[in-house]
Design a protein around this nucleic acid. Structure first.
Length: 417
RNA sequence: CGGGGUGUAGCGCAGCUUGGUAGCGCGGCUGGUUUGGGACCAGUAGGUCGUAGGUUCGAAUCCUAUCACCCCGACCA
């Protein structure tokens, strides 16, 4: 990819309306721009990260037999009235009318729509279990949007739904999603914990949250030495205390802050009973379909990863999220045609011939400007090409503060993982 | 919704106390010198000072209303 066609919208100053590090860096590095409170445009660099995360999620969903679909973001009120959530959901649900003055909402979640599909398409236990997911834009009219994309009003979320003819099958599938989630967050290189959780507005009877551990997290988690802990609401109920400190002392738990990036629920028949999503059993009986639902905050993950490991100078991505494997910085490349030609050759060799995702920075900037951008964006490997390198057929590889002069034929060995 | 803060050029800000018709840095554009960690010189474009009303000879500045955004809280994935 050439920088002349892949726009790099970096800023020198901190944005005036961002407070926490990830929010500042996402704007400074040119991942996003704010349109309005809680509404963000994803610029090319940001979209690249959305795609990387989506790709991993899709792979892991497919691995457990969950197939991708896409539902409309605008949903008719009738379905929400059937589930009785039209009245329950409150002002977080953005209600809109079409030209015929019929009521709709912008979907904050999709239990109603998916249940409607399933009740129409599925009639028999023989068609189950079934697993479907989508990655799509959701809208929740938050009381107070904040922290950039962490609590945005419009955001991208993966939501999966499972359908079963018996509880045991739901239980097994629930565990499959849990392990898929563990794979996803491991692959993303995030430090995370699973906690027992409240099922809240979505409903159901068992639920776990996945949290990225971060100081700026909004959620309070109580953890022991194992991977699984609980959130504060559960702890208070479980141990019958309102004072967290008492619980911590009594149960020898640690208190940490987390950013919720995933949440899985056993819904049971909450939606199928209200919306009459039924199947025939082996005994020719009509029963409600059992359901599970499984969410991941795709856009929130990006902010969470930045919160977890970055500096004031820039983003430090986990390997799976590095936007480019390396960048080629030509010094004076636009004036000196030899340097330009040599840079293009190197680019051709590692990017085109070896299918590595490389940025060729052909912008007419000084080296210092370019390097500052790379530090902001979080590109670790910098290949510097100037007069000497061009003459001697070498490359200067710069990683952090180490510079190494390497011959062209050894270059590729620095990219074998 | 309660409390606090901010709206002035693309971005970051000063000017407001004490009214006299707008300025700085960065960025942009043109030309030139440069290019190994945010270069320099010369020139140049760009603003209904959030919006509406009021006071005044005169308002970015004073008054009233209103809108937007940010922070804390309540609430929430």
């Amino acid at each position: 990819m050439k920088a002349s066609i892949f726009p790099i919208f970096t800023l020198k100053d901190d944005p005036s309306d961002a407070e926490i590090l990830s929010h500042k860096l996402m704007i400074k590095a040119g991942l996003i721009r704010k349109l309005n409170a809680g509404l963000y445009t994803w610029l090319p660099l940001g979209m690249k990260l959305v795609s990387k995360i989506s790709k991993i999620i899709i792979e892991e969903m497919n691995n457990i037999g969950s197939m991708e679909i896409l539902m409309p973001s605008i949903q008719p009120a009738d379905l929400w009235k059937e589930s009785e959530r039209w009245d329950q959901y409150g002002p977080e649900l953005l209600r809109i009318q079409d030209r015929h003055e019929r009521d709709f909402c912008f979907g904050p979640t999709f239990e109603e729509v998916i249940t409607d599909i399933i009740r129409k398409e599925i009639n028999s236990y023989k068609q189950l279990p079934l697993n479907l997911f989508q990655i799509s834009t959701k809208f929740r009219d938050e009381i107070r949007p904040r922290f950039g994309v962490i609590r945005a009003r419009e955001f991208i979320m993966k939501d999966a739904y499972s359908f079963h003819s018996n509880q045991e099958c739901l239980n097994v599938t629930y565990e499959k999603y849990k392990s898929a989630y563990i794979n996803i967050f491991n692959r993303l290189g995030l430090d995370f914990r699973i906690v027992e959780a409240d099922s809240g507005n979505i409903g159901g009877n068992e639920s776990h949250e996945f949290h990225v551990i971060a100081e700026t997290g909004e959620d309070d988690l109580l953890l022991d030495d194992s991977m699984v802990g609980m959130n504060v609401e559960i702890a208070k109920r479980k141990y019958g205390h309102d004072n967290i400190d008492d619980i911590l002392k009594e149960k020898n738990l640690k208190h940490v802050k987390g950013i919720e990036v995933g949440h899985i629920f056993k819904l049971g028949d909450k939606y199928s009973s209200k919306m009459k999503a039924m199947i025939n059993t082996k005994e020719s009986q009509n029963i409600n379909i059992l359901m599970g639902c499984y969410g991941i905050g795709v856009t929130r993950i990006i902010a969470a990863a930045i919160e977890q490991n970055s500096s004031n100078d820039g983003i430090i991505w986990p390997e799976a999220l590095e936007p480019f494997k390396a960048v080629i910085a030509a010094i004076d490349g636009n004036k000196n045609s030899e340097i330009k030609k040599y840079s293009e050759e190197i680019y051709q060799m590692i990017s085109k011939d070896n299918n590595l995702d490389i940025l060729l920075d052909d912008r007419d900037l000084r080296l210092g400007n370019k390097i500052n951008d790379y530090e902001l964006i979080g590109i670790k490997k910098i290949l510097i090409i100037g007069k000497d390198e061009t003459t001697n057929k070498t490359i200067t590889l710069k990683i952090n503060n180490d510079k190494k002069l390497i011959p062209i034929n050894e270059l590729l060995s620095y990219f074998s993982d």
